[in-house]
Amino acid sequence: MRNKDLRSGRSYDLGKMNLKELWVAYLTHGTILLYFSLIVASIVGVYYTFTGWLPVIGAIIMMILGFPLIWYIIHRWIMHVSILYRIKWTASLWKRIHFDHHQDPHLLNVLFGSPLNTIPTILIVAGGLGYLVGGVPGFFASIGTAVYMASFYEFFHCIQHLGYKPKSKYVLHIKQVHVLHHFHDEKGNYGITNYFWDKVFGTYYEEAKMRDRSPTVFNMGYDLKEAERYPWVMLKTGSPPRDRPAGSNFREQKKPSSEQDKQAA
């Protein structure tokens, strides 16, 4: 731990980090260390409640297959809904779980989900499903698998925002698709490593030319007008919502001229 920035816990700009620096930051981050501890605790739980391999393996397979759908549902219909910022008591939650990440997609500390939100969700959703499949051993096996999947997702989510070009064609592909979610149109590509459910629900797109650019891609609809009506996120942030990341040289796409509009008509 020679890196004083790691010890200070400051937010890292993934756009300025290399792969080696990411590995160090990832493996020493408090959230990831907590996840690893939960995985070990889940293994211990399975060991002391073990009744056979069938409920354990069943719960593990169920969670491996179900996690992408659970993530899609949470990302699309919880993280990206406006109702959370319109209610005073849930505005801070919405800000932390996703608004901050879209305001500046490269900051590591807001990229990771808050354990205060992720762990209860895993215990309730993954644990509940695991218990239905395999009883108490299934409960622990499902939780351990879900936490592992979350850790796996978090690492590749970091890769997708890292200033690094992956050598793997698959990783490069999921990185390019996820970048579109953050810099072109946020109403699509909700997956991280798996876009199967995006394809099922019709929210998948591979290239920017397939859609018009969303004017709310960085603020998810919480613009200045909305902030005036529902000020709680803005008050918590301490500044008005931005329509692009701080320090960004991003430029809006030019609108067609009136002459071009006439020709198009």
Rank of each mutant, 00 (worst) to 15 (best):
A141M: 12
A146L: 04
K169T: 07
Y164S: 02
I143P: 01
K169G: 07
K165D: 11
Y164V: 00
H182E: 03
I159M: 06
F201Y: 09
V177C: 07
H157I: 01
T203I: 15
I192F: 04
G138Y: 15
Q160E: 08
Y195K: 02
F183N: 14
N189Y: 03
Y170P: 03
Q160F: 06
D185I: 06
P166T: 00
Y164Q: 00
G188S: 03
A208N: 14
E206V: 14
G138K: 14
S151P: 00
T193Y: 15
H178K: 00
F183W: 11
V147Y: 02
S168V: 07
A150S: 13
H184N: 09
Q176P: 04
S168F: 01
I174G: 02
M149H: 08
H178F: 03
G191D: 01
H181K: 04
E154A: 08
H182K: 04
C158K: 04
S168R: 05
K165R: 08
H184Q: 07
I143L: 10
I159K: 02
Y190D: 02
L180M: 03
H181L: 00
H184V: 10
L180E: 09
W197L: 15
V179P: 01
H182D: 01
K167V: 03
Q176Y: 02
A208H: 11
V177Q: 06
S168G: 07
I174A: 01
E154Q: 10
E186M: 09
N189K: 07
T193C: 10
T193M: 13
F140E: 01
H182M: 08
K169Q: 05
K165I: 10
G188W: 08
A146T: 05
W197M: 11
V200D: 14
L172I: 05
Q160T: 08
L172F: 14
D185Y: 12
P166S: 01
Y164N: 04
V177M: 01
T203H: 13
H184R: 02
V171D: 06
A208C: 09
T145N: 05
Y190C: 04
Q176E: 13
V200N: 14
F155A: 09
F183V: 10
F201E: 14
K187D: 14
P166H: 08
N194S: 08
S142N: 07
P166M: 03
Y164D: 04
H161T: 09
M149Y: 09
L162G: 04
F156Y: 15
Y164C: 02
A141N: 05
K167M: 04
K165V: 12
F196S: 11
V200L: 15
G202T: 14
H161P: 06
Y153N: 14
I143K: 00
Y153V: 03
G188L: 07
F155H: 03
V147F: 04
L172P: 00
H173C: 06
C158Y: 09
G144V: 08
G138P: 10
S168Q: 05
I192L: 13
G138A: 12
W197T: 10
